[in-house]
């Protein structure tokens, strides 16, 4: 029985090296592209079918998901400000959801189980919130480090605490997604390995578990995509509202 962590290994498919940097297209990237292609073609089919006032099934799905994200954006960023960030937030949601879901296909790869990927996204969002904050409030944005209603004596103490809590945000954001995806897939791999190695008349037991856990993993894929998106909205909303 091979290691359950074996399927997290990345194998280059088309090696590309640019100035000594490895930019090879590997199985993880290919799996991600499959997921993104599905998302893209889903929306293209909806739009090409003609967006109707009375929606068909596909259009309903697209509308419900977009409406869901729009409510999210409205709630945490604000109705007016939210319009600007909606496409980014919605794309982020579909990107993560597609990557999470495509990984559930046996033999495929979940790129969101790579901490560097989730970390890159979280870091990008962190930088984005800083840019938005400084663009919107200028130097006054630094007051986000001092919560309102704090006595003056406490300020030197509060500033490092606030800096730590701000830096902790993107890290917890990326770690959460990475950990959930890795854990789920590890459990699936272990169970599937058991099903393969067990005798025929006992094999159905772990296999049944695999099916159940797979269903659970689909829910986790949605929940994690949702949480990542929600927290992105919360962080953007925080720097826009500034307390």
């Amino acid at each position: 029985m091979e290691s359950p962590l074996h399927h997290f290994e990345v194998h280059p498919v088309i090696p590309i090296h640019v100035m000594g940097v490895d930019l090879s297209i590997n199985n993880a990237v290919l799996a991600m592209w499959v997921g993104l292609a599905v998302v893209f073609f889903f929306f293209i089919v909806v739009v090409k079918n003609g967006v109707k006032t009375i929606p068909g099934k596909l259009q309903s799905v697209a509308e419900i998901s977009l409406l869901f994200i729009r409510n999210l954006v409205d709630e945490f960023i604000g109705k007016e400000e939210g319009k600007k960030y909606f496409p980014f937030v919605a794309s982020l949601f579909f990107f993560i959801l597609a990557c999470n879901l495509v990984g559930l296909i046996p033999g495929s790869y979940t790129i969101t189980s790579q901490l560097v990927v989730t970390g890159a996204f979280a870091f990008g969002i962190f930088i984005l919130t800083l840019i938005i904050g400084f663009a919107k409030h200028g130097a006054h944005f630094l007051s986000i480090l001092v919560p309102p209603g704090v006595p003056k004596i406490m300020i030197p103490l509060m500033i490092p605490i606030e800096i730590i809590s701000m830096v902790a945000r993107p890290i917890s954001l990326s770690v959460r997604l990475f950990a959930n995806m890795t854990a789920g897939h590890t459990v699936l791999a272990v169970l599937f390995g058991l099903a393969m190695s067990a005798s025929v008349f006992l094999g159905w037991l772990p296999f049944g578990f695999t099916v159940v856990i797979n269903g659970l993993e689909i829910a986790i894929a949605f929940i994690q995509a949702y949480i990542f998106t929600t927290l992105t909205c919360v962080y953007i909303g925080d720097v826009i509202k500034l307390h």
């Binding site: 730590i164 809590s165 830096v167 902790a168 890290i171 917890s172 770690v175 959460r176 950990a179 929940i223 994690q224 949702y226 949480i227 929600t230 927290l231």
Partner: peptide, 18 residues
């Protein structure tokens, strides 16, 4: 839902970052 999944990790990560 978001709170249920947030609270635990938040504490750990902040301590580690500090």
């Amino acid at each position: 839902l978001s709170i249920a999944f947030r609270l635990g990790i938040e504490l750990t990560v902040a301590t580690l970052v500090g």
